[in-house]
Design a protein around this nucleic acid. Sequence first.
DNA 1: CGCCATATTGATAATGATTATTATTATTGT
DNA 2: ACAATAATAATAATCATTATCAATATGGCG
Lengths: 127, 127
Amino acid sequence: MKYSKQRELILNSLKENCSHPTVEQLYEFIHKDQPTISLATIYRNLNQLAENGIVKKIEGLDNTAHFDHQTHDHYHFICKHCHQVFDIPYDIAPDLDQKVKNTTGLNVTSYDIAFRGICKNCQNSIN
Amino acid sequence: MKYSKQRELILNSLKENCSHPTVEQLYEFIHKDQPTISLATIYRNLNQLAENGIVKKIEGLDNTAHFDHQTHDHYHFICKHCHQVFDIPYDIAPDLDQKVKNTTGLNVTSYDIAFRGICKNCQNSIN
DNA sequence: CGCCATATTGATAATGATTATTATTATTGT
DNA sequence: ACAATAATAATAATCATTATCAATATGGCG
């Protein structure tokens, strides 16, 4: 993996945006400072960073991929109203890969939990 | 919801295909007997059936939706090699919505777990 | 039964997210 | 500084899904 200032910028921007942004959101954010950056570059680099375990790609929350600069095990909650993503601690359901192995014999290499609901802010503002 | 023979056919076909088919797979299957059926009809009806709780829509396994004629709580494992989907019993991680509520205060209305790995058949055949 | 309101269909255009293509530019090792 | 290779910007292409709409089917009611 050769250095590029675009990749560095993308990674730093993701670290600043702790809100699990989508590619489009990250593009909007970066585009303000770097108007020449291409959307394809964001896609390419985020996928590359995810493949190398430097960031985490979160799929299955809604119909678009979100990215997370935190790589430690944890789960996610997405608000069906504002689409904001919240972290859910790993220890509410630890070692599920091992439990699946024990009960079914299947070897789990990765897994994700997508929790859905209405977040506290939206719950208040909807009333 | 008004009756239609297409919807009945789609639901019956899903019940016969216990393999968590995608829309495309179900279309191929039905198209053999009913060559005039439209792909849009399959999409429309599966979504409608899912909204009414008659079938279950599984998202987040890969980049396409799968459908399940079983509506009771359970999780899924998708093989990264053959893309077949397997059921994982609910009791390996029960009441996660309640646990999330207790630890974070968030109200979970639905959640899914996507387990990924290589299934036993593929594990053998790859060697 | 026949009529009407309305739901559904089939065909296809449109959309949205993502990936592929390609000529050009940047990075790295020697 | 040069050559090999990776990365970029711009954009076309792809894939899954949804929207549109004229034609057809369903179900209730007189």
